[in-house]
Design a protein around this nucleic acid. Structure first.
Lengths: 154, 154
DNA sequence: ATGCATGCAAACCATTTGCATATCC
DNA sequence: GGATATGCAAATGGTTTGCATGCAT
């Protein structure tokens, strides 16, 4: 399993964003948060998604005596801030990943290595309103995810 | 919360399908399965989605001494047979519902009462292959769900 | 010093599993 | 009668909570 890294830009596309997110969470810049932010930067560059437990384990391996709760609490906050996004797989499992794109987008996930990439395409607005009208729903949100195999996993 | 029923056809669109599904599961036509099938028919007509526990409770209320495991085992089997489908909400919860449409389709769910309806629209094949090619993924599946409020819950 | 953030362990919740027993054909 | 399905209760897995303590500001 080649762990080929595909950096998203010259200097890791999200370099500042994650720590900035943590900063804006509060005025406290703690050691656990630094460690988590660092690990997330790595994962972002690899485009790897992870479970809460994955992240905890990885961060633990880095030495820190960080608790599970801290990791889960961080994830929750970062998801709320839209720094992390969550993807649901059809087998019922779900994972998180660093979401680089500030504007509306959807995801394409590798069912084998769990790499996640973003794409711009979205349903035509006319389609959405039309479906809503037909079913007499007011549409407020939507989710679109493609599943497949990435280059390395084909 | 008006529980207005919108039957999907003259004689409950899925009348036969659920029991047929159970029949084809095996040669055993047991009492618990009959009770579950009956409850599912009701839920199908109301287009209501439910959690595993919901279904267990409902079926229990009907008198039977049915166990949780039996209900969950039935759900698992019916999902595998595509009689039930599963929908993931953005808050991380998920529910099941009787899926009436045999051919490819997607779902529109009410975020308030959890009613689920199906619609035919799907992404143009060209779009899917184009995204796949661009990201170098081979696309195998996709999920599209719209969220909103149904007529009664607006 | 003050209070937010943390670690730990226990609690939680939905679901799954093991197993002896009941039930269908 | 024999296999399959069931009920129960215990186990599980992933996540959350309570709380005393630690650490950043």
């Amino acid at each position: 399993m080649a762990k080929r890294v595909e950096p998203r830009g010259e200097d890791s596309f999200e370099a500042g964003r994650i720590s900035t997110a943590f900063e804006s969470l509060s005025q406290r810049n703690t050691k656990p948060r630094k460690v988590i932010a660092e690990k997330l930067k790595e994962l972002a560059e690899e485009r790897k998604s992870f479970t809460g437990d994955d992240l905890w384990r990885e961060v633990r391996r880095k030495g820190s005596r960080i608790g599970r709760a801290t990791v889960f609490r961080s994830i929750e906050q970062l998801v709320a801030m839209e720094v992390l996004d969550r993807i649901d797989f059809s087998d019922g499992s779900h994972r998180f990943f660093v979401c680089g794109d500030r504007h509306h987008h959807h995801h394409l996930a590798c069912i084998h290595c769990h790499r996640v990439v973003e794409f711009e395409y979205c349903l035509p607005g006319a389609v959405i309103t039309s479906i809503g009208r037909q079913e007499r729903f007011s549409i407020e949100d939507h989710a679109l995810t493609l599943f497949g195999r990435c280059e390395d996993c084909k």
